[in-house]
Amino acid sequence: MDVLYFAWVRERIGLPKEKIETSAATVNDLIAELRAREDRYEAAFADLSALRVALDQELSEFDSPLEGVREVAFFPPMTGG
């Protein structure tokens, strides 16, 4: 699946988008996999209360299942307007 990062999450991880092969069942499982990879992921995902997730471009929850999902995006709370 495609995993996208925006704003400071993108800056902390150091890339806007990557393809990830995963069998993670939920967003939380995917985050656990990413955090185990490298320090920069650990730093980006350290405080989940500061993060939001979208699955296929719809705001979702961290316990949402990933089955059938093609695009996951992580970002901080939005500041439009």
Partner: peptide, 11 residues
Amino acid sequence: YLKSRAPFWKK
């Protein structure tokens, strides 16, 4: 709604 539900981020 567009302040906190539309995916924009200001720097």
